[in-house]
């Protein structure tokens, strides 16, 4: 949505829609009937299978409902309850910590790795791509066991190493900050290969001429990375940024598996996230209305974060 400005001058997503004179709006729509026709199957499926559950969920967020019997109107009660909950605020704090630490690392690391793995100079890069992608296809249950074995306090392999080299044990699974770091490591481990793949796809779209031209102008590898790769990849970087943000605001699996006996909350609630709370609110505590309301709070946060990122990209361009 952003880079095409330089290539072709097509207005980006964020620019004001160029609707003609109001009187001709129907004419405009008729003129574009083929466009509507082409996207209509998608939107019909979308409306039925994603729109209806969404609407149901909005309605449900204003009800008290235990998942059985008639829902009872509760107005804004669920939202009020959530907004003054200290646990929700704590979980939000945890999520922001995860975002601040992980977002730049994931974007930076995956872009650099993808650039390296795209370079014909690197021998064995096809094999490396597969290695990096393995976390994405390793059974989550088994991954959780391995991380438990690595990180546990008394007999964990990492603590064994740390003790052997004289640093001493770290309470990876029993103290607040180490527990957060454990979650961060597990997320990083799982998310890198996936995002490297997306970055690789994006890199393929950059015309080789641009690099050739940069070489002629005397750019070195680093300069090419910052002056060709990064600008050309802005759309894909934005995609990775937004999907990573959505993923982190919906973080669930890693804390849930690592701290299963406390429903993902971990020591001192340090790894509780909005989604671990939402899951236990729905499927353990059977408060479906409240869980739906929490879903919308999460969605609003995601939309907010997305808009900030879109704005940042636009500002950087201007």
């Amino acid at each position: 949505m952003t880079t095409q400005n330089q290539i072709s001058g097509t207005p980006g997503l964020m620019s004001a829609p160029q609707v003609g004179r109001r009187s001709s709006i129907w004419h405009q729509i008729w003129k574009h009937r083929i466009e509507y026709l082409l996207i209509s199957p998608f939107f019909i499926i979308f409306g039925i299978f994603h729109g209806y559950p969404l609407a149901f969920s909005i309605w449900l967020s204003f009800q008290r409902w235990q998942g059985i019997g008639e829902p009872r109107w509760f107005g804004l009660g669920n939202y009020e309850r959530l907004l003054k909950s200290e646990r929700i605020i704590g979980a939000l704090g945890n999520t922001i910590i995860f975002l601040i630490i992980l977002l730049p690392i994931i974007i930076g690391l995956t872009l650099v790795l993808a650039t390296i793995l795209n370079s014909p100079q690197i021998k064995g890069r096809k094999v490396l791509r597969v290695l990096y992608f393995l976390p994405y296809i390793t059974s989550a249950v088994i991954v959780a066991i391995i991380f438990q074995l690595l990180l546990n306090n008394n007999s964990g392999w990492i603590n064994g190493i740390l003790e052997a080299v004289g640093i001493g044990r770290v309470g990876w699974l029993i103290e607040a900050w180490p527990a957060r770091i454990s979650v961060i490591l597990m997320v990083l481990w799982g998310a890198t290969g996936y995002n490297v793949l997306i970055m690789l796809g994006g890199l393929q779209g950059i015309p080789a001429e641009l690099y050739d031209a940069a070489s002629v102008d005397g750019a070195d590898t680093i300069q090419k990375f910052f002056f060709v790769t990064v600008p050309m990849m802005r759309g894909v970087i934005l995609f990775v940024g937004i999907t990573t943000t959505i993923g982190l605001l919906n973080l669930f699996t890693q804390p849930w598996l690592l701290f299963s006996s406390s429903s993902g909350s971990g020591p001192d609630d340090a790894t509780a996230t909005l989604n671990t709370i939402q899951y236990s609110t729905a499927f353990q505590a059977s408060r479906y209305g409240e869980a739906a309301a929490l879903g919308f709070i999460i969605a609003i946060l995601v939309i907010f974060a997305t808009l900030i990122q879109l704005r940042l990209v636009r500002t950087a361009e201007a």
Partner: peptide, 24 residues
Amino acid sequence: RRFPGRNILFYCVLVTMMLPYQST
């Protein structure tokens, strides 16, 4: 392609990405 409602429709697509599955 540019056509009336393009941005609105695209945002609709984005918004459903943002709801956790437990909600729906």
